[in-house]
Design a protein around this nucleic acid. Sequence first.
DNA 1: TTGAAAGCGCTAACAC
DNA 2: GTGTTAGCGCTTTCAA
Lengths: 350, 350
Amino acid sequence: MTKDRPASSPTPTLEHVAKVAGVSRATVSRVINGIRNVDPAIQEVVRAAVEQTGYVPNQAARSLVTRRTNSVALVVSEAEHRAFDDPFLGRIFTDPFFGRLVSGIMGVLRPRGVTMVLMLAENDAARAQLIGYLKQGHVDGVIAVSASAADPLPGLLTEAGLPAVLSQRPVSPLPISYVDAAQSAGARLAADRLAERGCRRVATISGPLDMPASQDRLTGFREAMARHGHAHVPSVEGNFTQETGERAMRQLLNEVPDLDGVFVANDLMALGAVLALHDSGRRVPQDVAVIGFDDSNVAMVSRPPLTTIRQPLEDMAAEMARLLLAHIDDPDSPPTSVIFEPTLVVRKSA
Amino acid sequence: MTKDRPASSPTPTLEHVAKVAGVSRATVSRVINGIRNVDPAIQEVVRAAVEQTGYVPNQAARSLVTRRTNSVALVVSEAEHRAFDDPFLGRIFTDPFFGRLVSGIMGVLRPRGVTMVLMLAENDAARAQLIGYLKQGHVDGVIAVSASAADPLPGLLTEAGLPAVLSQRPVSPLPISYVDAAQSAGARLAADRLAERGCRRVATISGPLDMPASQDRLTGFREAMARHGHAHVPSVEGNFTQETGERAMRQLLNEVPDLDGVFVANDLMALGAVLALHDSGRRVPQDVAVIGFDDSNVAMVSRPPLTTIRQPLEDMAAEMARLLLAHIDDPDSPPTSVIFEPTLVVRKSA
DNA sequence: TTGAAAGCGCTAACAC
DNA sequence: GTGTTAGCGCTTTCAA
């Protein structure tokens, strides 16, 4: 008595549209999902009925049968128990890194009609809620960006058996796909550049050494410098912030006053290093050459602008999206890793 | 033949759990949804069965009957057709504004088990896809943050009949709920402070005048200054960036060289204004007092630190979440607006 | 307090 | 090429 009223106010269903168009639900469904084998004339009628009724498919009903949501999550996670305020969001979103990532991902998702939702997992409570959300099948898969090393998210994702792709090699080996840049190759570019400039006393400021990327950049740099005849390359560890870059540089200058070249594991620290060098009365690059990593926005802000190692982030992000889609299409496809080559961007600091 | 296998690998359903627990689906459902009237002993058995099977409710099936997803979207939108890269994301996320907003929203959502997803609508194509996504019932409602005036999103939201709350009064009147700060009251605080300091030649740098907030700050400031005997307050329009703040200040100094007080419609522009004042050889606040608006991170970065008008963003955000939840619970509840009072934060610039 | 059964709106075999 | 029909997994009356 309350059903079978095509034009009533409750949101229209396939049933309603079918009635209006004078066809069956199945046919309407076919038209909506763009399946061939439907008479063009009928297609027209159906489309008109959809228009007239203002029909929109019910995602829940659709997902229930297709087991797909056509959406994926981009999860930004970090290990530390930090209050949910400025630092984390500021740090992660500020960097063009993030914009380039999203851009690259959207580039492959949008054309395929897949929506991306952004989720934050800034502490364990948030992560627990997140995993629950994901397991309930709200999205088809996830791309995870970790801001720090000890992040348990990759492990949780694997455990939950969700289609997932990481934006970097996981700390401990995990059966999970990831995309990364060839960190040591990037470090070698920096080493070669420094050697080419004729630097004789070279040092490096590394990132947190519990992160694979940091380790790779450090050892890659050392090995390359060794090939150039530099047996020992002093290093100080930073944590990717400008402040620690500044402090590390001061320490390095103390230990190696006649330093004439530094490779810094990211641009933000490189910015701090340049500041510390200025403070100590040294000129960049005349007295000390500085090379950063990432090619983030601060590279251009620095005086002088930073020579740095650039990662093809858009391409990497696009690849992550493609890998994820592949895993979603075939959940049994084996974990894959794709590594991209970084390039040297020469500006003024080296 | 392929069903009724409680311990098989396909994701367990209520059916499986019920079989393991030796009860009916309905009972398991009751336990899971925390409904009373279930024998404690049976509750225990069911919980054990859930544990054993690793059961997780299927969100699609659940949504199909409850018509709820228990998630809401925070949509960050902007009008201009901009490429999806640094500027937009950088601008919007960098500001502590954003972190404080998310924090306030989470504060009310998380305890209620509601998940927040973040979505970006940086141009018309993205917005169209977004609206489609929302209409399909992927989320129960949306909180919309507009970065600019001509943003069509509020209109689209209203049209789509989705539960929604805006983070500011819409440009043109719309039957939609919003939370805002008392802009003109804030401007008056600035005026009073400037008058109290004995400023005689006062001017202002406004935000884009197509935005209600900008207009309110401008007229509020003028009216308050009028009450203090300042019949005419020159103003120059900026667009909320540091650069335009700098330029506006230069123009103002040209027109009113003996200026001794400025109210700037946001902190970023105030930062630019202070820079321009320094460049012109003027001291802040001795020669010219400067008051900003927002109390964003740059307020502390400025030399001298900015005296500014602070909005209670966390409270505002929490209220948005509460309003949205109310609309979701009762779709017929009328649009509501809640206005918060800003406060004066005295630092060094005025 | 518990179980049986009727759908929620849709897709996908399978017939015609 | 189109219609019929059987569920997808869950919640929720309604009886018992």
